[in-house]
Every structure is written in C-alpha cells, then in structure tokens.
Amino acid sequence: MVTKRFDWFIVLNYTFLALFCVITIYPIYFVLIGSFNEGSDYMRGGVFLFPREFSLANYGVVLQDERLYVGLKVSILRTVIGTLTSILFTAMVSYAMSRKNLIWRSPYYWLHLITLFFGGGLIPYFLVLKNLALINSFWVYIIPSMFSVFNMIIFNSFFREIPEELHESATVDGANEFRIFLSMFIPLSVPVLATVGLWNAVYHWNSFFDAMIFTTKRDLMPLQLLLMKMIREADVISNSQYIPPQVQRKISVQTIRMAAIMVSTVPILCVYPFLQRYFVTGFMVGSLKG
C-alpha cells in the first residue's frame, strides 16, 4: 500500500499564500465596510468585519456631486480612446521593429531604449506640450501616451515568436505589410493585446497627475483628480449647508473618503476578471526566446 508523504513545504507554501491574500484583500474590504457604515457610528471604532450600522448616506453624498459625472465621462473617454490608440500605435511600431529587413532597425531600437532610462524632466516636457498646443486640451491625455517603449519590447518579443513562414506566404499571395499586420499578426496576438490593454486601461483610469499639471479647466478633470479633491474636502462636504441635518448625522469625513475611494476602484475591479487569464500569459511573453 502506497502512502502519500506529508509535505511540510506545501503546507507552509499554502499557508503563506493564504496569509498574503488576506493581507492584500483586507485593506480593500476594510474600506468597503467603512463606506457602508454610518459615519457617527464608525467614529466609535470597532468596525473591522461587517458594517455595524448599515447606511448608504456616504454614497449618496458622493454621488450627488455633479462634478462626479463630468469626471466619470472624461475618465471613460480617456481610458477607451487612450487604450485603443496606445495599443494600435505601439503594436504598429513593434511590428516594424520585429522585421529584420527594416532599414536602421538597430539604431532605432537603441534610441528607444535610451528613453527608458533618461528623460528631459517635467519642465522641458511641459514646454514641449505647450508648443504643441496640448495644454488644457483633452488630447494631452492621449497623444503623449500613444507609444510606450516597454510595451513595444513586450509586443516585439511576441511578434518574433510568430513563424516567419506565415509572413512569407502572405507576401507571396500579394499582401502588403499593413495587411499582414492587421489580418495576421493582430489576430494571433490576442493575449499580449489584452495584457498591454489592461496595463494601459489601469494607467489611464488611475492617472491624475497629468491632469493636475497640464489642465486647469474643470470640464477636463478626470474622475481620479476629482475624487482626490473630494477626499481632501471631505470635512467641508460633510458640513455643507446643502446636506440635510438628518443625513449629516449619518456621515463623517472618514466614511465619505472611503465611499469616494470605492467609487473610483470598483469599475477597474469589474474589468480585471475578464482579462486575468491574458494577464498571466502576457507576463510570460518577456521570458520567450527572441
């Protein structure tokens, strides 16, 4: 009779991973239960596992701000347009860099790598955007992020794994490079496209620094910058004269901040599960032999 040996390494490994998951997930859960708790009750402390006094008043205060919907529209447009243009443009450059017959391919490649390690700084960058008339424009969110050297390297590694015979057969059939790129390489690159798309979507959704530096118009304020302002102004909002007294008793500065954080976090959390399987595949691309 064969007995299965007790493996302490597996036990310790699973225990460590379980603790790591708890440490990772609990801060989000803590903010979630705090956002659903009455503010005055939450200030007493002791809310760790479940809302003690359930209330939607915090979300009501956050969602009644009209600026929230302007910021939501800007963030959605920025995320969708910025992700699609970045994927398309970076993939096109990566496809060209993966072709061995590209003239001056090596100098182009090293020039791209230099930009990974050296930059001009914020002030020269601001002056360049100003000369391009991108300051106080929606396109300041899109055009500067259309190309990423790091993502180009990821795409390039994946494209090099596609058999050269496919490209040669398409060339013999009369297809040009643009047709080969769209009809052959793009359909074969769904895992890396989804992975890089997720990275870009998270970047655009969470970004607020560029809006804070390069825009001053209220109608260009993305959701993250607006929520940052709301978190800083939570004490003012909770004591606003436009909030009924019965609602003010159910909210607090801390719970309003938690509700604002959840409003900005939930959308990207809903998207991630659909792309998670591609996310793992994309990480393996960097280990492929070029």
Rank of each mutant, 00 (worst) to 15 (best):
I237V: 15
L188G: 12
T195R: 11
F283T: 13
L288D: 12
N239W: 10
I28E: 13
R249A: 12
S169Y: 13
M262A: 11
Y141R: 06
I251C: 13
M1G: 10
L12P: 00
T79W: 02
N136S: 07
I180P: 02
L288Q: 15
L72C: 14
A170Q: 07
V61Y: 01
P273D: 08
S183C: 07
R5E: 09
E164I: 07
M228T: 13
M212T: 06
G60V: 02
I87N: 14
F6M: 01
L269Q: 08
P187I: 04
Q64L: 07
D41M: 03
K250C: 03
Y109I: 05
S183L: 07
V236N: 14
H167F: 10
A18D: 00
P51W: 00
F209S: 05
G60M: 07
G174N: 14
P107C: 05
G120N: 10
T15L: 00
L129W: 08
I261Y: 00
T195Q: 11
M152G: 08
A260V: 04
G39D: 07
L56C: 09
C21A: 05
P191E: 04
N156S: 11
G82A: 07
Y95D: 10
S264F: 02
N136F: 08
A201V: 15
R105S: 04
V172H: 08
G282K: 01
V266M: 09
D235H: 12
N131G: 13
F279W: 03
I76Y: 14
F150A: 03
E164D: 14
T215M: 01
Q241W: 09
V128G: 04
N136T: 06
R218I: 12
A201M: 15
M212L: 12
M43W: 06
V93S: 08
L72T: 15
R257L: 04
A18G: 03
P244V: 05
